[in-house]
């Protein structure tokens, strides 16, 4: 059996990471610090690419920090899948928190079946294409009005769409109570970009079929709703290496992080 010390080390360490990131972003959003909170969004690096190639400048409020974060993110995805999403991204952290609350409200039921879930996950790709098309065409950060990250930390600031942004934000928050991580799994354009590389993910979780007792705890623990107990390794593009499944597994060394 797993001992409790490991749970303390990793699960709580992840919560600590998420809390530190949120505190740092609030600090920057309040005007302290040299850069704005927006400078640390890796999606800004993707939005900046077209402007860099065509005019040699960063679009709107984007800067070298966004591009550096995006390059770092790509390196991270190749090495450790979508770990940015579960360890760093504040939208993921807030979504996870709401999901924990909602899990009790909806009596531990998943409101979207596996088939619909698989289809909805494809929505991220048209969202990505639409956002990039209009960002590149208009040379402005059009996603600001829809982006929970920007709307939360800017306090519906410059670039938000007034009532429309409030409705969008409220819908995402409400949906996060009813469905596990709806924005991350169905709409996030940064998630779509990572998806292209996440299957490479050198460090991933492996399941030992021989020792697995098919208790299903890992399936229920996964915030991305990946059926962990049916897979021998988490090559799944949405695995974020949050290690929740590893933590809840009652069999020692059944679920482990391995490279290659």
């Amino acid at each position: 059996m797993n001992n409790k010390r490991t749970k303390w080390k990793i699960t709580y360490l992840r919560y600590l990471f998420q809390a530190v990131v949120i505190i740092a972003l609030v600090y920057l959003a309040l005007g302290f610090g040299r850069r704005t909170f927006e400078a640390y969004c890796p999606f800004g690096g993707v939005e900046a690419l077209y402007g860099l190639f065509t005019t040699g400048n960063y679009t709107c409020a984007l800067s070298e920090a966004n591009l550096a974060m995006f390059i770092g993110l790509i390196a991270l995805v190749v090495l450790s899948k979508k770990s940015f999403c579960s360890w760093i991204c504040p939208v993921g952290a807030i979504g996870e928190l709401l999901n924990r609350v909602g899990f009790r409200i909806r009596h531990k039921k998943q409101l979207i079946g596996p088939k619909a879930d698989r289809v909805l996950r494809w929505l991220r790709y048209p969202v990505l294409l639409i956002v990039l098309y209009f960002t590149y065409k208009i040379e402005d950060l059009i996603f600001r009005g829809y982006d929970p990250f920007y709307l939360i930390f800017s306090g519906f600031g410059h670039g938000s769409l007034g009532m429309a942004s409030i409705v969008i934000m409220a819908s995402i928050l409400l949906a996060s109570l009813l469905i596990s991580l709806p924005f991350c799994r169905y709409l996030c354009p940064l998630g779509a970009i990572q998806g292209f590389l996440a299957w490479v993910g050198i460090a991933k979780i492996y399941r030992d079929e021989g020792t697995c007792i098919d208790c299903g705890l890992c399936d229920r623990a996964c915030p991305q709703l990946i059926p962990v107990s049916t897979k021998n390794n988490m090559r799944h593009i949405d695995c974020t290496n949050c290690l929740e499944c590893v933590e809840v597994c009652p069999v020692k060394n059944c679920l482990e992080v391995k490279v290659f």
Partner: peptide, 10 residues
Amino acid sequence: IPKIFIPILL
């Protein structure tokens, strides 16, 4: 690899 590898890498 140890699980702590992931946060260190991040």
